[in-house]
Every structure is written in C-alpha cells, then in structure tokens.
C-alpha cells in the first residue's frame, strides 16, 4: 500500500506544564496504604480522575516494591501518571515514566470528614484555598529593546514603552504591547496561551508568533507594514488588523 500524503503538515510538539497531585508514600507501605484507605473512605472519589505523581525520593525500595505499590494504588483507582525520585533502573517499560524537575505548588488539603456528614455528600471536593485568584503578572519596560537583547517573560504580559530593534526579541507568556516600532521578533502566548495578542504602534517585524504559530516578515501582508496593528490567533491562523 502506498501512503498518499496530501497535507505535508508538520506535527506540532509543544511543552506544557500541568498541576498534578504528588503522593509521598512512607514506609512501611502497609501502614501508609491503610491511612490512604482511611482518607479515601472519608472522601470517595478524591483521587478519581486526578493526575497523580508518586514521589518516592529517598525511599530505600527495590523494583518489586515499587511495582507492588503501583498495583496496590491501581486497585484503589489511584492512577499514577509518573514517578518522581526513583532511579531509572527501578522503572521498567511497563511502569509509569520517570519525572523530574517538579516545581512545588501550594499543598492540597486532604478533605476532612465531618461527623454529621451524610454518606454520599463528600464526593464533591471544595477547593480549600479561600484566597482570591492572583492577578496575572506583567512587566513594563520603559527603554528600547536593543538588537541582540532578549526580553523573556513567560509569566504574563509585557508592555514596552519604546521600540523593539531589528535583531531583538520579546518572548511573553501573555500578550505583548509595544508603544513604538516593532522591528525585531515578538512571540506572545508562548506557554500555550492562544488568546494572547501582539499590539504595536508600527509594524516592521521580522517575525511574530502566538502560541507556537508564527509568521515571518515575508508572509505578512504588505499593507500592514508601518501601521499600528494588532495580531491574534483564530484557530490555526494568525490574523492581523490595523488599530483605530
């Protein structure tokens, strides 16, 4: 059979980070599993459909013990997406993949059962964090971004009061606002934010990108050159229009 490739479109590979629950088992595992069962009994479905990473760092265990633990957890409907802190030799190909470089996030609070709780009402887990959602961070740069300089801000929006020179680049997790001429590269939404936009007072860019989709100067509509422009993503297509 011959394979006909009508659309030679490349496969997009993108990095993305997710929040997972990290379980830290303790020795002996029998006791720890008993405590886990106790927790699960108090809040049925707590582990259901949650991505779980098993952190076995510092535990003196062998291959067989890890396999046994993963099996035990599987029987309790706890699905392990990866194992952190284990020697690669401990993990076979039929085991969840090794994970590393995990960054700590706020702790999950295990649900506490109330005495007067009726059975079946604990399924819904209320987020225990009462703080309001944090504002998206942003930075303001009041100097021109010079050729050879790279402004990297994956946390959020970047506002530049000045121009971005040819050979300079601005990389932002959120939107990019340039109150000046964009002559270099601007890459917005690099951490997977497809709703990020690029705004500039004068478009002379070498390259623009949103969420991994990019356009070089050659592909840009010539009638937008030198204009105040906003750029956004619609599906897989980069759209641009003049501003006011």
């Amino acid at each position: 059979m011959t394979e006909v490739l009508t659309q030679p479109r490349p496969i997009r590979l993108k990095g993305r980070s997710f929040l997972a629950l990290a379980l830290t088992p303790e020795l002996p595992f029998e006791d720890w599993l008993a405590r886990l069962d106790d927790l699960a009994a108090r809040s049925a479905g707590f582990f259901l459909r949650r991505p779980i990473v098993l952190d076995v760092g510092g535990l003196p265990i062998d291959r067989l013990q890890i396999r046994e633990l993963v099996d035990q957890l599987g029987r309790r409907n706890v699905r392990i997406m990866g194992i952190e802190g284990a020697m690669p030799s401990l993990l076979g190909s039929d085991m969840p993949p090794a994970m590393s470089d995990g960054r700590p996030a706020s702790d999950f609070e295990a649900p506490v059962a109330h005495e007067d709780d009726e059975a079946g009402t604990t399924e819904h887990v209320v987020p225990s964090d009462p703080q309001p959602a944090k504002a998206t961070p942003s930075i303001v740069v009041t100097q021109p971004v010079r050729s050879g300089q790279s402004l990297f801000f994956p946390e959020g929006d970047v506002t530049i009061v000045g121009s971005v020179a040819s050979g300079a680049e601005v990389v932002a997790g959120g939107s990019i606002h340039i109150y000046g001429t964009l002559r270099g590269r601007a890459m917005a939404g690099t951490t997977g934010n497809a709703s990020a936009r690029i705004f500039c007072r004068k478009l002379e860019a070498e390259l623009i990108a949103i969420d991994g989709f990019y356009k070089t100067a050659e592909d840009m509509e010539p009638n937008l050159r030198g204009k105040a422009v906003q750029i956004w993503l619609e599906g897989d297509a980069i759209k641009a229009a003049t501003l006011g």
Binding site: Q143, R146, S147, G148, A165, S166
Partner: peptide, 16 residues
C-alpha cells in the same frame, strides 16, 4: 545604512 545602524543598536545595548 541599515547594517551599521543595527550594529550600533547592539553596541548601545552592551553599553547599557
């Protein structure tokens, strides 16, 4: 001319 201007821009970045 453009190449000189771009190189100068780079140097200004280094000066800063």
């Amino acid at each position: 001319e453009v190449s000189s201007v771009r190189d100068s821009d780079r140097i200004i970045g280094l000066l800063d």
